[in-house]
Design a binder for these strands. Structure first.
Lengths: 134, 134
DNA sequence: CTAAATGCAAACGGTTTGCAATGCT
DNA sequence: AGCATTGCAAACCGTTTGCATTTAG
């Protein structure tokens, strides 16, 4: 993913978010690092190029991004929240050995849910990935 | 579910857990309250009948129960961990209005996972339940 | 000039830890 | 006596909050 600054600013404005320096840098990081990063991952990386950066600003940014539908939160039985910029529905697999988180397509069918309105869903698997398993 | 103390003691021993007063009371609570309680839920209820009870003991008990396969942990985008004594696989639906958590059967099929070993999985839905929606 | 964005420091809250006290065999 | 269980208090740590400072239109 290699968007220009202009394209990223338009992307944010389309989501009803005013572009700012931090927001653009976070967006760029998310687009270039599809690793489902934590707030600390993002902070540690960006604080190099923005020395005055605070964790609070990353928290603020992720809260806004989530409210505006730019990211989804992942809760993968960890204490930290992870963020996924791919908001198309997909499942996640977390390798318990190397910690890597994989995306994969999944389809499910559920019964006995008449009258229930589903707003969101999360499908997570835990185990050993193909790379660690060979 | 109405097991005698003897039956619950056998149940624990079969899971390689030495029965103790607290462990039996927690087990009984879990069997009679299929509401996916938090540590605080369990603590608040049991501290009535065990005035000297501490949260630490509930944490200790749940850690042991989880290690021995008596319960599964649920992480439902909340800050607290919930516990489910039904360890047969099933999905969960959390109502965002009333907070109730429903169990339901679900089957899924996933692709592109050759070589991946799955140890556990969690399938969670969020929305409005039938009761709140009518 | 005004409102939004950023940043600092403290508070919050669920969980973990170290160790002492208690209970059980 | 010796080991497991329980409990207290403090630490831990990701996140939130209040408020002051800076930035931008």
């Amino acid at each position: 993913m290699n968007l220009t600054n202009e394209e990223m600013m338009d992307f944010l404005r389309n989501k009803d978010i005013r572009p700012s320096n931090i927001r653009l840098k976070v967006l760029k990081y998310l687009l270039n690092n599809i690793t489902h990063p934590t707030v600390d991952d993002i902070y540690n990386r960006l604080s190099n190029e923005i020395p005055t950066l605070s964790r609070t600003s990353i928290y603020n940014t992720m809260k806004l991004f989530k409210e505006k539908g730019v990211v989804n939160e992942l809760s993968l039985n960890e204490k930290e929240i992870r963020y996924d910029i791919n908001t198309n529905f997909h499942g996640h697999f977390k390798c318990e050995k190397c910690g890597m988180i994989y995306d994969f397509p999944v389809t499910e069918s559920l019964d006995n849910m008449e009258g229930f309105v589903i707003n969101s869903k999360s499908i997570n698997y835990y185990g050993i990935c193909a790379k660690c398993n060979k």
